[in-house]
Nucleic acid binder design. Structure first.
Length: 267
DNA sequence: ATGGTCGCGCAGCGA
């Protein structure tokens, strides 16, 4: 089963690139972030024509997340079900695709260290953990895919000095991410690839992509049970090239459907 | 070089 995640930075601006990429790659499940669409504007029929069912949780203009699946979509949930007030932003959507529980997440950026939005980011990650605690178990096949807006380690940024005092690399953010992972999630790309310099996001400015000035902030976290079935993980840098690219590249995770404990993933 | 580029939507903010 092939799972992918991609922050498209406006689905309206990116639709041609996304359709082309889906036809070339044919993932079983594709998580999108930053659609910047209201639900009524989401091009579900266009994805249906490519063979994908979908669920979208959007607000228009900002944020917005979706899950596309060619192995079915059931039991969709928008936002958190953690007994607290609704999240004001559209940043997470859940669905069951075949036998796989999937979350597409767009973690808040944080803006500046100490900013209200920074505290919102840390709290948001706490709510994600609380939702997992309340509804799921790490023995189930489950993935949380998305734009985490956190570089887990120093090797995940092109320059540590360039990010001194910035969001995405602080101990508080990394600890909040660690708390989510402690639920029972594995960064399957990092399990398979040791080197630094393997990035998923490059700022549009200053030719950062061509200068290899990026960050690895998009990743697939797989439940412990599912991580045992991880076969291959890659970042599709080619999608960051050419005309009107997103500033993020798609991240792909391939799982073996015949591994004990996760048999029949796409049924 | 303390900037730069996108997307949204039409000024300036967010990333």
């Amino acid at each position: 089963m092939l799972v992918a995640t991609w922050n498209v930075n406006s689905l309206k601006a990116r639709m041609a690139r996304v359709e082309e990429w889906i036809e070339a790659t044919k993932p079983d499940v594709l998580c999108l972030q930053e659609t910047k669409l209201a639900d009524a504007q989401f091009p579900a029929m266009s994805f249906q024509a490519l063979g994908y069912d979908s669920v979208h949780h959007g607000q228009g203009q900002w944020n917005g997340v979706a899950i596309l699946s060619r192995v079915g979509i059931e039991d969709t949930v928008s936002g958190f079900d953690d007994g607290r007030e609704p999240d004001p932003d559209a940043r997470v959507v859940w669905a069951t695709c075949g036998a796989l529980r999937v979350a597409s997440v767009y973690v808040p950026n944080g803006r500046e260290v100490g900013h209200d939005h920074f505290h919102y980011k840390l709290d948001w990650l706490g709510r994600l953990r609380a939702h997992l605690d309340a509804h799921h178990d790490p023995s189930e096949p489950l993935v949380v895919c998305g734009d985490w807006n956190i570089a887990p380690e120093d090797r995940d940024v092109w320059s540590t000095s360039a990010f001194e005092g910035s969001t995405h690399v602080t101990p508080e953010e990394r600890q909040a991410l660690e708390k989510v992972k402690e639920w029972g999630l594995v960064d399957v790309f990092r399990e398979q690839h040791e080197p630094g310099g393997l990035f998923s996001y490059w700022d549009y400015r200053g030719g950062d992509f061509h200068q290899k000035r990026g960050m690895r902030i998009d990743f697939v976290l797989a439940s412990r049970a599912l991580a045992k079935a991880s076969i291959a993980n890659l970042i599709d840098r080619n999608a960051r090239k050419g005309q009107k690219p997103s500033d993020h590249a798609p991240v792909l995770a391939l799982f073996d459907d015949s591994t004990a404990g996760v048999r029949g993933l796409w049924r």
